[in-house]
Amino acid sequence: MTLLKVEDLHTHFISRDLDNQICIAKALNGVSFSLEAGRVLGIVGETGAGKSLTAQSIVGLLRPPAKIVAGSVRFEGRELTDMPDAELNRIRGNNIAMVVQNPRTSLDPLTRVGDQLVRLHQIHSGGPKTASHKRALEMMEAVGLPDPESRAKSWPHELSGGMAQRVLLAMALMNSPKLLIADEPTTGLDVTVQAQILDLLRSLVARFDMATLIITHDLGVVAHFCNDIAVMFGGSIVETGSVRDVFAAPAHPYTRNLIAATPERFQMGRAKALGGQPPDLYNLPSGCVLQSRCAYATELCQTTVRNAEVAEGHFALCHYAGRLEEQPAVKINA
């Protein structure tokens, strides 16, 4: 059975402007993907593409004015979008664990690290406190925190960014989740620490057999880490497929530009910057969201786009998917 199935998810920011007119920012426009047990899916895209919002929509962490207006999120066959908070709370932190991007400010500053781990285990799994405590020490060991006994007595403000991120990973592992959502888990960390955390994450995913959704803007992370990739732009997933297929033969102009714009290619002198503004979410164009930035755009692109399957399991949201020329699509101005 599919572990997580997101179908046609629409999340809007609904607010009122100074004239009391309703303003709608269409931040997610029909996001669909699915994740099988044991797979690792990477969601990439530029800032404002809706990556984090997708994660928050899945676990019901949206805050007003953000609101899911249509679509469904099914986890183990259960619909999450209309689930009451109390029931959702039994899934969050338990079957679905999250690792967030600001570990130091996310931990409760007034509770010792070990007590936070124990509390999380007590809330979801119950059982004797000593067992929770033992598990907390095991998990701290598993995420590579030296001397778990004394680390458990630390306050969050005494941890470095990398250590805090390891603590968050330990928090995520406490209740043996089936799905791990890592929302830019290495953004605020040093490059060397980033590599350590990613290696750790990879080994933990394999060891604890969790399906993992990793959100990043770093294609290198996806390439080394994930089985599948979903490229987001303007609140839509523009291309999905296995990492191997997508990197070998990107079918969407945006993916092509994104891959062409990696720093390695810059150094080889073969790439041009990925230019242009993200689309105005208050006023999305009809048809393809990329049309103003796309070198291939024609009148056809102003009509509704359907997902085209370019190879088995490899989809692209483009009228010209599979029919593009070899060269990367470049159109800098927008």
């Binding site: 676990v59 962490l61 805050r63 908070d85 109390a86 959702l88 709370n89 039994r90 899934i91 969050r92 932190g93 338990n94 664990a97 999250m98 967030v100 600001n102 400010t105 996310s106 931990l107 409760d108 500053p109 509390r119 999380l120 809330i123 979801h124 928090m171």
Partner: peptide
Amino acid sequence: LSSDTVRYAHACGLPERNVRKL
């Protein structure tokens, strides 16, 4: 309430009562 701490507490599925205490 708008801090990372509370957002993360929700992400961890802390019951409303615990979040209020926090």
